[in-house]
Design a protein around this nucleic acid. Structure first.
Length: 466
RNA sequence: GGCGGGAUAGCCAAGUGGUAAGGCAGAGGUCUGCAAAACCUCUAUUCGCGGGUUCGAUUCCCGCUCCCGCCUCCA
């Protein structure tokens, strides 16, 4: 089934074809977190989009080799570790651990590799690349001892962002150059050590210092995936200058085109505003969990809008997600009951998974895909109400759901019912047999308080997790 | 100033040159001891505004308004 993506570089919808001559493996590089703090939900929106991308490619038969880097040395991590009075590695470890925990909470499939910038293997590779760039005239060491990329040697710089460098308006964010870079746009490949760096430093042919942020990604991407990769993802804010710099460095080192398809995820807003600490609308994943929302509910909200569109995150949308997921849960429970233990599946037309996959194949049109899913749910329920579905039909639908869920990861995890709750249910059954409705309602309230909701059907009481 | 994205019901949002998916919320009904769930019915004569092309435009073209992002290390 065809898959199309809107490539940032060409601004065109392109049919996806992997580099792999066998057409099997897909190489993806995704910019990972800077581990100086807990990641916020805006970060996770990007990681969830990448997760959806990976899972849909896998569902389409590809094998995905994905790299996500961990930036564990930069201005912020250095500032953080010095403020905490900890060695850099010890400071960042805490946030690395937290990051992996958060990935699990959100059911994000781990990348194949999570290289860290400070890994000696990659530091060595970065130094090697910088050396190559200096040797070939693409970079130079300035008076401040830092090494800079010589932008006028790479005319393609700005093509990804579609910026004309001559027309850039200075915004005051460019560090003032007392040290005479050749051109203001030249970015640092190697940053010479200064006092603010404390004991964070590596030796290099240009003296003590540390790598620039951009070269970290180029080194890890080409080191692990080769000169040319299929897909490179990140947030829109990374397009310029980060990804431009990555292209410049990689292509000047390898002489090859670096990335075939660039995919960029739009920003997350919270309650209609840009998320910021000062606006009081800044949330980490942990903040939301603490407020009682679950990982899958947050996953649903962050995933339910196409990655290229700005997503307005609200608590109303979390509540909507909870209801929508409840609808899916009910549907699965009904199907499971109907299917029983029979494994024979029919070829019921409702169980056709292709429309769902087709929607996702269209630049990850998740809204369209969810529309297909919920139509399937309504049609199934209707048929079930009319007694028109056989156990084999139900099994077929469940099998289809399994495929869909492999991509969405929305299914509720099974949870054992505690003995205390089972006792309450049993007592309630007795009260109901005696038509003692007051007692029945009181027990229902207790079961509810224990975190389960009970429903009465013709076949008796049914429990589900609240 | 340059570049880019967007504007569809109370909220989120899909979509197409031929008369508006889906989710949430809301109203009524069936079912139920009551609920819950499920199902049924209803909820945008209309897709930011003004022109144009067309038999026909939310969809194409032109102009405008508003919102958001980026413009040198924020996903």
């Amino acid at each position: 089934m065809a898959i199309r993506f809107l490539n940032t570089y060409t601004r065109a919808l392109e049919e996806f074809r992997p580099l792999d001559p066998a057409g099997k493996t897909v190489k993806i590089y995704t910019c990972g977190p800077t581990v100086y703090n807990y990641a916020h939900i805006g970060n996770f929106r990007a990681y969830l989009f990448e997760d959806l991308l990976q899972r849909h490619l896998e569902a389409s038969g590809y094998q995905v080799n994905r790299v996500m880097n961990l930036t564990d040395v930069d201005d912020k991590t250095i500032r953080g570790c010095r403020a905490a009075g900890l060695p850099l590695a010890q400071f960042t470890q805490k946030f690395k651990d937290a990051f992996f925990e958060d990935l699990k909470t959100l059911r994000i499939k781990p990348a194949t590799t999570f290289p860290a910038a400070t890994d000696p293997v990659y530091i060595a590779r970065m130094i090697g690349m910088i050396g190559h760039l200096v040797e070939h005239g693409y970079a130079y060491q300035a008076e401040d001892k830092s090494v800079y990329f010589r932008l006028n040697k790479f005319p393609d710089y700005g093509k990804l962002a579609h910026l004309n460098l001559e027309e850039l308006r200075p915004t005051g964010r460019i560090a003032n150059d007392e040290y005479e870079k050749e051109s203001v746009g030249d970015f640092a490949l190697w940053k010479a050590w200064d006092e603010a760096d404390g004991d964070v430093a590596w030796e290099s042919p240009w003296g003590k210092g540390r790598p620039g942020w951009h070269i970290e990604c180029s080194a890890m991407a080409t080191g692990l995936l080769g000169d040319e990769i299929d897909i490179h993802c990140g947030g829109v804010d990374n397009i310029f200058p980060h990804h431009e710099a990555e292209i410049a460095q990689a292509e000047c080192c390898t002489g090859h085109k670096f990335v075939r398809t660039w995919l960029h995820c739009a920003h997350l807003m919270v309650e209609g505003q840009k998320m910021s600490k000062s606006a009081g609308n800044f949330f980490t994943l942990r903040d939301l969990l603490q407020k009682g929302w679950s990982g899958r509910e947050i996953r649903y909200v962050l995933l339910s809008v196409n990655y290229r569109l700005p997503l307005n995150f609200t608590f109303e949308s979390l509540a909507a997600a909870r209801s929508a997921l409840g609808r899916i849960d009910e549907w699965i429970a009904r199907l499971a009951e109907k299917a029983g233990s029979g494994q024979n599946a029919s070829a019921h037309p409702l169980a056709d998974p292709t429309r769902f996959a087709e929607a996702l194949g269209d630049d990850l049109n998740i809204s369209g895909a969810l529309g297909v899913l919920f139509e399937m749910i309504r049609e199934t329920n209707r048929a079930l109400d009319r007694g028109e579905l056989t156990p084999a039909d139900a099994r077929a639908l469940l099998n289809t759901w399994e495929k869909i869920n492999a991509t969405l990861q929305f299914q509720r995890e099974e949870e054992a019912i505690s003995q205390a709750v089972l006792d309450l249910v049993e007592a309630r059954a007795a009260a109901r047999a005696a038509k003692n409705w007051a007692e029945s309602d009181a027990l229902r309230a207790k079961i509810d308080a224990a975190g389960w909701s009970v429903k009465d059907s013709k076949e008796g009481q049914k429990l589900s997790r609240k």
